[in-house]
Deep mutational scan, measured.
Amino acid sequence: HEITLHINGRRVKLRFRDEKAAEILKEAAKKGLDEEELKKLAEELWR
């Protein structure tokens, strides 16, 4: 699955395995994680 989040006016595509991962990524984006941090988090969730 993929999700596209808008971060600092940019579109960031993240891959994720399940809905739980999608929710975690959305929450992290709301908390203000930047693009690099979100990509790292997405990679961690993928494993």
Rank of each mutant, 00 (worst) to 15 (best):
D34Q: 12
K13W: 04
K26I: 14
E44I: 12
L5E: 00
K31C: 06
K30M: 13
A21S: 15
L33T: 08
L38W: 02
A29Y: 13
E37Q: 15
E27Y: 07
E37F: 10
K31A: 13
H6N: 13
A22R: 14
K26R: 13
R47M: 14
A21N: 06
E37P: 06
K40Q: 14
K40T: 12
D18Q: 05
H1K: 13
R10V: 13
T4A: 05
E27T: 09
D18S: 12
E23L: 12
E19M: 11
K26G: 05
I24F: 08
L33R: 07
E44A: 11
L41E: 01
L38Q: 01
I7R: 02
R10G: 06
G9V: 01
L5N: 00
H1L: 11
T4R: 04
L33M: 15
I3G: 01
A29S: 06
D34N: 14
G9N: 05
K26T: 10
D34Y: 07
I24L: 11
A21C: 04
R15M: 09
K40A: 13
L5H: 01
K31I: 08
E43P: 00
R47H: 14
L25M: 04
I3M: 15
K30Y: 10
L38K: 00
K39C: 03
I24K: 10
N8S: 06
A22I: 08
L41S: 00
A42E: 04
A22F: 10
K31F: 10
K13H: 10
L41N: 00
H1D: 10
V12Y: 04
A22H: 05
L14V: 08
R17A: 08
T4Y: 09
V12N: 00
R15T: 06
E44K: 11
E19N: 10
R10I: 12
R15K: 13
T4N: 05
H1S: 10
K31W: 10
L38I: 14
K26V: 13
R15S: 04
E23W: 09
E27G: 08
A29N: 06
D18Y: 06
D34G: 14
D34H: 11
G32C: 06
T4E: 12
K40V: 09
I3T: 02
L5P: 00
E19Y: 09
H6K: 10
E36N: 13
L38E: 00
D18T: 14
R10W: 03
L41T: 02
K20N: 10
T4D: 06
A22T: 04
L5A: 02
E2F: 15
R10L: 09
E37I: 08
V12G: 00
R10M: 09
E43C: 04
R47K: 14
K39F: 11
E37A: 14
H1G: 15
A42N: 04
K20H: 08
K40D: 10
R11C: 15
W46M: 05
L5K: 00
L14I: 07
A29G: 06
L38D: 00
E36M: 12
D34K: 10
R10F: 08
L45W: 03
E43H: 07
K39V: 13
E43D: 12
R17T: 05
E36D: 11
L14G: 00
V12S: 01
L5F: 10
L41F: 06
D34V: 09
K20A: 12
I24N: 04
N8K: 09
E36P: 10
H1N: 14
I7C: 05
K20P: 08
A22W: 08
K39W: 09
E23F: 10
F16R: 02
E44F: 11
D34S: 14
E23Q: 13
E44N: 08
K30T: 10
A42I: 04
K30F: 12
G32H: 05
N8G: 09
F16T: 13
I24T: 12
E43M: 09
H1A: 11
W46S: 02
I7D: 01
K20M: 11
E23K: 13
R10Q: 12
L14C: 04
K31D: 11
E37M: 12
I24H: 05
A28T: 03
G9D: 05
T4I: 15
V12F: 06
A42R: 01
I7H: 03
L33Y: 14
L38T: 02
K20D: 05
H6E: 15
A21M: 07
L5I: 12
G32Q: 05
E23T: 13
N8P: 03
A21T: 08
E43K: 07
V12E: 01
G32F: 06
E19A: 14
I3E: 02
I3D: 01
H6D: 14
E43Y: 09
K30P: 01
K13I: 15
V12D: 00
G9Q: 03
E19S: 12
R15G: 03
R17W: 13
E23V: 11
E44S: 09
K13E: 05
R11M: 14
E43R: 09
F16N: 02
H6C: 15
K13D: 04
V12L: 10
K31Y: 10
E23P: 03
I3W: 03
